[in-house]
């Protein structure tokens, strides 16, 4: 069964032109799929649809459906979606809103009503994954851009999602942080996590099992 699957997805923002037209895609457990395409081709929009942000938070004319392990995304509650799908956005500054790293990582598990002991375990585990265990009590404002993005990734990992969606998460990272994040993604793949990521650079193709290209509202699988 596919971890994440989009069937016949068409989308337009209001009366504007159709951004996505009958798009099909899938990601299997333990697989990393990269989505490429020129600016404005709808890559971020497709990520938002795949993660349920559209139509939950942003409106538009959406057709087709997204399946999460065979279940239509729209039939799941927000809690069920969050337990299964983690989304990492491009800009780390907009993803961190608590004073310290620990607070930031606790936020997601607290929303899922997890007990304190479990939250502590997940914080330690997520920080360890992004190699930032010593930063637990550090203020987020003092972190570098790359460190902030790693903390944002750790905050997503603390939710232990089965599907990870990354929207150009590497675009603002330095070389060292890029290497660490790539290492994290490799480990997550080994654990069976499905990864769907938007990235245009050739340097990230090594992570991918398959690559999609989105252009003119159409999607096609390209050879690696």
């Amino acid at each position: 069964m596919n971890a994440l699957e989009g069937r016949q997805i068409s989308f337009s923002y209001g009366r504007g032109k159709t951004l996505l037209s009958q798009v099909d895609f899938y990601v299997q457990p333990g697989e990393c799929v990269i989505l490429q395409g020129p600016s404005g081709s709808g890559k971020t929009t497709l990520c938002h649809i795949a993660g349920g942000i559209i139509p939950r938070s942003f409106s538009g004319d959406l057709e087709g459906e997204v399946l999460l392990f065979g279940t239509p995304l729209h039939s799941l509650s927000l809690a069920d979606v969050v337990k299964n799908v983690g989304i990492l956005f491009q800009n780390p500054d907009s993803q961190l809103f608590f004073p310290t790293v620990e607070d930031e990582l606790a936020f997601g598990p607290e929303n899922l009503c997890l007990p304190r002991e479990e939250i502590a375990l997940r914080i330690a585990e997520a920080l360890d994954a992004v190699e930032m265990s010593s930063f637990r009590l550090v203020e987020t404002d003092t972190l570098s851009h790359g460190q902030k993005q790693r903390i944002a990734l750790a905050a997503v990992l603390a939710l232990r999602p089965r599907v990870l969606i990354l929207d150009e998460a590497f675009s603002q990272l330095d070389t060292a942080s890029t290497a660490i994040v790539k290492g994290v993604l490799r480990r997550q793949k080994e654990l069976g996590q499905a990864i769907f990521m938007v990235e245009n650079g050739e340097e990230h193709l090594e992570l991918a099992e398959r690559v999609y290209e989105l252009q003119g509202g159409q999607i096609r699988e390209v050879a690696l």
Binding site: G51, I53, R56, S57, F58, S77, L78, A79, V82, K83, G86, I87, F89, N91, S94, Q95, F97, E102, D103, A106, F107, G108, P109, E110, N111, L112, C113, L114, P115, R116, I119, A120, I123, A155, V156, L159
Partner: peptide
């Protein structure tokens, strides 16, 4: 954007939430 990020991490998913601190 902040609202979307918070919701993507489960804010508002449950009527209650626990507190680590």
């Amino acid at each position: 954007v902040l609202a979307v990020v918070m919701e993507a991490r489960g804010f508002g998913a449950m009527p209650r939430r626990t507190s680590y601190l």
